[in-house]
Design a protein around this nucleic acid. Structure first.
Lengths: 231, 231
DNA sequence: CGGATCGTTGACAGGTATCAATGCTGGTGG
DNA sequence: CCACCAGCATTGATACCTGTCAACGATCCG
């Protein structure tokens, strides 16, 4: 839990403008003079699988851009139960609720090795009080939150367990960059994503492996959509 | 479906500033000069129970503020299934995804008689290109979308049907203005909200009525939280 | 070599979907 | 005014699915 290595830190312009994924991230539309408004340093951090980026109800000071990797947002209930309410990938923004001063709604945990940029909220506020250049990017991200939530509710929480797991696998595969291969979460996480038990998740995954719909070694997986049979 | 009576139309300042629920709505922070930027008329519309405010994938031109009543956002899937993904009440904003030019993600349907203000997106854009006065209100509403989605996923889609229905009733009651009495949706809507069948919803509601946790006449309901027994 | 963690599988009880029938209510037209 | 109909709520019977409890194998690591 302590290895969140700091790669580097900077104040904006000199690094962000050269960012290889800049067109994917929050600062895509910023001008030179906007970067000069940054007073607090932006830090690039590395998290290993299982490490926590921030906790639910933590005091808020940062917004996080995912540079690479995979992050789960976990919502804990007072009774000890929990759900994974969202997955974040490259270009996604974590802790966006920091922008109106509320505390974090979920705990953010890296599911595999993950690289992020930690951006002080004050830098964002600084820009927003001077220009509207962040407006469309922020709006786009808020909308993605809504659209993801919509997909989640309408596809990942209804139907039987085979439907749900199949939907999740298709979702994971649809966003994979690398040759159709994607990261397969552990059975407990699949359960927390789909509101089913670990055992049921395991049974369905095992069956998908037998029918050939899914092939996986450890957490690296591929699917053959034509072999999907939900009968 | 044709009775969406138009109460009145205006261009901003003269009416919005006198709005009795102004502190609840999007324009809470606007100044006199902001209202003067409105070029297109804002209209106050009335919808009866069951009438559609907008449809999924409609071309987008408006954002809607709920003045009173109750609205469900329905997400239809290609296979004909559907889910209710959110409920909107007084002060909530419908069609907020219009703000970045996407099409509506869901269909909005009034669940009971509902009064709304229809605001052209261009008016919002006009303000946003000149000032940051809308920023915090918009952010607050986007965050409410996220926070609602979170509650939905973590409480309304897990556990057995009694848990889910009880959670929904507590949610509905928690936001009622009038003496603990609230609007009880029809069984089919309860099912679409909780991802259970109409029959199961009916069975649970009937049982809650027998145990005294719930009392309802038609769609007007009250609950006695102390009589909740999930055994 | 243990020990811990994770995935798999089995048995069984309980919960839910499904199909079906019946009552209830409000509205319509004769 | 009443008969009828359509839509909604309720209830029953049954098959299927999933949660629960439990055992066991595989893998990794100290």
């Amino acid at each position: 839990m302590k290895s969140e290595a700091i790669h580097q830190a900077w104040n904006g312009a000199e690094k962000c403008q050269l960012c290889p994924i800049r067109d994917l991230v929050l600062f895509a539309d910023l001008k030179q003079e906007d970067f000069n408004l940054f007073h607090l340093p932006i830090k690039e951090l590395e998290f290993k699988a299982g490490e926590t980026i921030y906790k639910q109800n933590d005091t808020i000071s940062f917004v996080y851009t995912i540079r690479s990797g995979l992050v789960k947002l976990v919502h804990y209930l007072p009774n000890g139960n929990y759900r994974i309410t969202r997955l974040l990938r490259q270009g996604d923004l974590a802790g966006i609720e920091a922008l109106n001063g509320a505390s974090y709604l979920q705990q953010a945990i890296a599911m595999k090795n993950t690289s992020i940029c930690r951006i002080p909220v004050q830098n964002i506020d600084q820009i927003n009080s001077h220009s509207t250049h962040l407006y469309s990017q922020l709006t786009a991200r808020w909308q993605k939150v809504q659209s993801d939530a919509d997909i989640w509710l309408s596809q990942l929480t209804m139907g039987n367990s085979k439907h749900r797991v199949a939907s999740l696998l298709l979702y994971l595969a649809s966003n994979s960059h690398s040759e159709g291969s994607f990261f397969l979460p552990c059975r407990e996480d699949i359960g927390a994503l789909l509101a089913i038990t670990t055992e049921t998740a395991s049974r369905v995954i095992a069956e998908f492996n037998r029918t050939g719909f899914l092939e996986n070694h450890k957490h690296s997986a591929k699917i053959n959509p034509s072999k999907l049979n939900l009968a």
